[in-house]
Design a protein around this nucleic acid. Structure first.
Length: 424
RNA sequence: GUGGGUGUAGCUCAGUUGGUAGAGCACCUGGUUGUGGCCCAGGUGGUCGUGGGUUCAAGUCCCAUCACUCACCCCA
């Protein structure tokens, strides 16, 4: 039979990989919980319109990267390309918002974008998101950043670079846009790359982020955001910087940092690694004060980030499973039923280990026990079968002892001294 | 969507000017009557991605196709 191939960009995560994801989720719960966040699980599928309206019609994500298809009634559905839109929709849907109240949620799960896969980018990828609604204060920005740093630190990742920028707000951004357009208009049209010539019209801020060397040189002389934002935005940004500096978060300013989703305003940030290839951003986010209202909710501010789990996984050391407490070796077929029962009793008492099926040579069983990294090998051969005992062999040293099965179960602490298993 | 690279054993890869396929690791067995790791010996395992073409002869050359991969664009 012909094999069915996996879908391009959709990967299987076997234990070696999935253990890293479990670790990230565990750390996220611990750290985010300390900052007052609760878990929100939202659907993977939403109506296409949600993303079109929130992310922006003319962004690359909406324009060419969404997995969209009609459902059975012809309505356009989309596998979420990012999480914030769905979280905002859920927040609005719930009607839980009370004026003056701050709501904090985190969520994780798969996202989908129809792009060419490469290192650090798959069509199904996984993010951890955290969003705060109802807080306009710079403290919320600072806490978001510090929480992200704390989470990354809890994974042992401390050589990541934090870059920040402010994009201005609804009041001052139009003026800056105009200044930029004017600046680019004064340049020789051919000086910019093809993409940027288009961007000047559609989204001039993006030109600042262009990687083409020629464009980079020109951008150096472009008007900086910081000199064009309004007094309120300036004060807000300075307060954020002051707070994270006071907390000891190392960071740098990057006036070219422009995010690809239209809803960002004021504070934006990105966390990058130098070790995972060209797709180096492991987290990114910022403030999106108009988004909740734009999706039909109350006019409350929002701020949050998305963290790429797959990219973080590339930075994590292998996560080792705990060593099994035992490996149970049966050397005679007649002992199989008794052995299975013993394994069951041990597991009921909180120990973990593998039962070797069928009879095999002692040598091969011990090799297997060794490969499993089992701390003890329990052996039931002909002798033990007839005597109702079990040979308990310590795999970390060379000691071994033959004991009655009931004795073993009664004195687990003696035969399995290490305190790894719960519930003992 | 655009450009480059790669498809040979379960994995990582050799394979000469075209001449009938190899290593390391892994796996299994043995070296011990019932004692693992290290070592030693032996063994299992390959439609050479797929289809077509050139040739006496193709892993090797040509064409097509599929897959994977890196990068651009963009993003986590």
């Amino acid at each position: 039979m012909a094999r069915i191939q996996k879908i391009k960009g959709f990967n299987d995560l076997f234990p070696e990989q999935s253990a890293k994801y479990a670790l990230m989720e565990q750390r996220a719960r611990e750290v985010f919980g300390r900052y007052g966040f609760g878990e929100l699980r939202v659907p993977v599928l939403e109506r296409t319109e949600l993303f079109a309206r929130s992310i922006g019609e003319d962004t690359d994500v909406v324009g060419k990267e969404m997995f969209s298809f009609p459902d059975r009634r012809g309505r356009s559905m989309t596998l979420r390309p990012e999480a914030t839109a769905g979280v905002v929709r859920a927040f609005v849907d719930s009607g839980l918002h009370q004026p003056g109240r701050v709501s904090r949620y985190y969520t994780f799960g798969p996202m989908f974008r129809y792009e060419r896969p490469q290192m650090g980018r798959q069509r199904q990828f996984h993010q951890i998101n955290a969003e705060t609604f109802g807080a306009a204060e710079p403290q919320a920005d600072a806490e978001t950043l510090l929480m992200l740093a704390a989470f990354l630190g809890s994974l042992g990742l401390d050589d990541l670079s934090f870059e920040l920028n402010t994009l201005g707000c609804a009041e001052c951004r139009p003026a800056y846009r105009e200044a930029l357009t004017g600046f680019f208009g004064s340049l020789d049209v051919n000086a910019l790359c093809e993409d940027c010539r288009r961007r000047v019209k559609t989204n001039p801020l993006r030109v600042l982020d262009c990687k083409v060397p020629g464009c980079r040189d020109l951008v150096k002389d472009a008007p900086a955001v910081s000199s064009h934002v309004c007094a309120g935005c300036r004060r807000h940004f300075e307060a954020v910087l002051e707070m994270i500096s006071a907390a000891g978060l190392k960071h740098s300013l990057n006036s070219r940092l422009v995010r690809g989703l239209d809803y960002y305003q004021r504070t934006t940030f990105e966390v990058c690694s130098g070790e995972i290839g060209a797709q180096s951003a492991v987290a990114g986010g910022g403030r999106y004060d108009g988004l909740v209202a734009a999706l039909g909710g109350p006019d409350v501010p929002g701020i949050g980030f998305a963290c790429g789990m797959d990219r973080l996984a590339m930075l994590l050391d292998p996560v080792l499973d705990p060593e099994p407490d035992f490996y149970l070796a049966v050397l005679d077929n007649r002992a199989e039923a008794q052995a299975a029962l013993l394994a069951q009793r041990l597991r009921e008492r909180g120990l973990g280990g593998e039962l070797g099926y069928g009879a095999a040579s002692l040598k091969s069983r011990l090799r297997q026990a060794n490969k499993n990294r089992a701390r003890t090998c329990l052996i039931i051969g002909l002798e033990e079968f007839e005597a109702g005992t079990v040979l308990v062999k310590d795999m970390t040293g060379h000691g071994q002892e033959s004991v009655g099965r009931e004795t073993l179960l009664d004195k687990l602490d003696r035969f399995f001294p290490s305190p790894s298993g719960p519930g003992r």
